[in-house]
Design a protein around this nucleic acid. Structure first.
Lengths: 258, 258
DNA sequence: TCGATTGACGTTAAATTAACATAGATATAT
DNA sequence: ATATATCTATGTTAATTTAACGTCAATCGA
């Protein structure tokens, strides 16, 4: 059986090559059921690679190459939890902790309860919701323009708010890693994260291994700017050594350890 | 023929009342075609009122209309509705509206739906929760230190965020009124509200009549600073005349039963 | 007043989805 | 090592949803 990921790659390339394809053509071309084609293109559409049209699919209107590279894999929960647990090594009771709008950073919040008292700063709405009823955690929300896509507050109001504050440690994530550069989809989010970097004494980046060797639209930071880059198992030895030679403080976290 | 808007209202109330309804039930209940029901609920779903489920619709969890409905069945409904509705006289489509952390200002939110598109700015957590699911309302949250007492963000971060923005109209409330002065309990809240005053072209104060002739710890503003002070019936004629002589633009809103 | 435009609605065929069932792969326990 | 459980991809089918088109009435502008 052909691996599903490969099938999705093939479908993506096929659609990107032709620009627009009818779903029946995909069914015939790949010799699988219509339902399976739907499931594949649904996922590709959710990843922003393709767009469904009712009977057909097209590439996203923002250019062929970009759409091809916007391919993102979904991260699983166990990996995120392992990363979050490892991130606690950089937090101490009494610290000021800054969290970005990533689901990875959000996973850290429940674990922070063991380190109270703390001050926590975030621009993430779900993270804020977790913090509004906790004793002994001083919570500062970063305001700004609400974006439903990220469920977070961003924009210049947010950047300026960050600039007024100083944190002991920043825990954040990125959309993609290529070489020694971390990437993010949205330039306004990049600005907020860069402001967070500038406002934090230590910076911890959490990225699962599937995000390596991919790019997003906007460069965010060089990996050497982080005091630690935590990732999950899955990188080749050569790549790990290459990153370490480049000065990246990389830590590979075992998912099974719990 | 029943007007389409009224039909949508009826559908919304029907679904809100029952929590979840099958589409076939709606078809039977309203005696129109399935396609028409779809078109109605599609629009309601786009407005963030309902959620489609494949064969059924539910109310949006924590949605705006749900609260609007709950709002209607409260005891003080008529009074509060009258105040909030009167406040709408100062808002136009396209305006930037600033709302403080008062429950009175929160009550205005459901009514703002008729004036979309709008930009709304607030530091109130419950108000923010109402605004995160609404299309065509550009929502800016004022961040700051979270205070459980007020369920809002305040402090210097909030004040500075306000100072970066400009609104067409501020709708706010106060804890108490004595003479021609509005009072608030907490000095940090006073600072935020004063910043809001400075950032808004027009200022509307909503205070029900029971707040008159009382004081709180900190003076907030003189009533003459507001472009309108809206209150409910209950002040003596002498008091109304005295306030007007002092230059207060007072409007006593009649609570019309409906 | 007339024609054009708009919005609401119905009908129908086609497309999509949810739900269930199956098989292979992978992990886990005994 | 074997059996059991879990997960993922897939197919099948029925129900649901959508797009497209046509009709009708209300509104608008010349």
């Amino acid at each position: 059986m052909i691996k599903a990921d490969e099938r999705r790659e093939e479908i993506a390339e096929y659609v990107i090559k032709l620009g627009q394809v009818r779903i029946d053509d995909l069914v015939e071309h790949f010799g699988v059921s219509r339902m399976t084609i739907h499931r594949h293109i649904d996922r590709l559409a959710q990843q922003g690679v393709l767009r469904k049209l009712h009977g057909a699919v097209t590439v996203q209107p923002s250019g062929l190459y970009e759409s091809a590279f916007r391919y993102r894999v979904t991260v699983n929960r166990a990996e995120k939890d392992a990363l979050a647990r490892a991130a606690l090594d950089y937090v101490e009771a009494g610290h000021v902790v800054m969290l970005d709008d990533s689901s990875t950073a959000n996973a850290v919040v429940p674990l922070l309860l063991d380190l109270k008292p703390l001050t926590v700063i975030t621009n993430s709405v779900p993270t804020a919701a977790l913090l509004t009823n906790v004793d002994e955690i001083d919570f500062i929300c970063l305001g700004g323009q609400y974006h439903a896509t990220y469920n977070a507050y961003i924009g210049i109001v947010c950047e300026n708010a960050v600039a007024q504050l100083r944190a002991n440690v920043l825990i954040c994530s990125a959309s993609a890693i290529a070489g020694t550069t971390a990437f993010i989809q949205d330039q306004n989010v990049v600005r907020v994260k860069q402001a967070m970097m500038a406002a934090s004494a230590r910076r911890i980046l959490l990225v699962d291994h599937a995000k390596f060797d991919r790019i997003a639209l906007h460069a965010f930071e060089d990996l050497t700017s982080f005091d630690a880059v935590l990732t999950t198992e899955g990188l080749g030895d050569a790549q790990v050594q290459s990153l370490e030679r480049a000065g990246v403080r990389l830590r590979v976290i075992k998912t099974t350890a719990q």
